[in-house]
Amino acid sequence: MRNDSTSEKQRIYARIEYRKAHRLRFLGHLDVATVFDRAVRRAQLPVAYTEGFHPRAKITFAQPLPVGTAGIGELCAIDLVERPPTQQLAKHLSRELPGGLDLVSVQILPRTKRSPFADLARADYLLVIAADEVDLNELRQAVDSFTAAEIITVERETKRHTRQINIRPGTHELSLKTDGTPHIQMSLSLRPDDLVKPVELVEVLAERMACHRLPIQQVIRSRLY
């Protein structure tokens, strides 16, 4: 592998920040990957391809986004075999991405042995609340009792069995904002040892409400870092 032709070429990648919004937030993660693969081919970018009989452009996504969730600071890395001017790459890729999947920024960086996203530790989310369907004071109490607790246990199903997980340590921030459109702002860990999924947090909050439900209008992942 080390002596193949690609290793003689430049070992660089394009770090892409993009948005997945509007109706395109209903694309699945694999669909988004296919959209990028096709956009890259249409744009004729100098990308590296995987080996084998079904070569695909080498595109690594930082973190899959569930169907229906919007993302305004999503990240992916496209391995390149040549260094095109960054402006030009951005222009060509941006032209080929469908509206709703929009390019925010491009950086060209040297490839390292580690995955370009190995250091990602946190994701920030915004949960837009259907304000007319919920008592905001009650929700505030639920949020406060969550942040005051030291242990919050949820059940998480893995391939083999169901485990009890404490999601409190991985919840770095949780607050209810009621100025303007009411929304919950939260910052959750992405690390394997204290990972928290937004849906788990929503379930815990819903349980603490009298009506046992938390009507969410939209989930937006605002940042990965």
Binding site: R23, L24, F26, L27, G28, D31, R38, V67, G68, P98, G99, G100
Partner: peptide, 23 residues
Amino acid sequence: VRMLSETVLAEVQGPARYLGGEV
């Protein structure tokens, strides 16, 4: 105006097939 609004899309299986606006 699209056939299925976002609220409906949020409730169906595999909403991508109802989005329209493909390349």
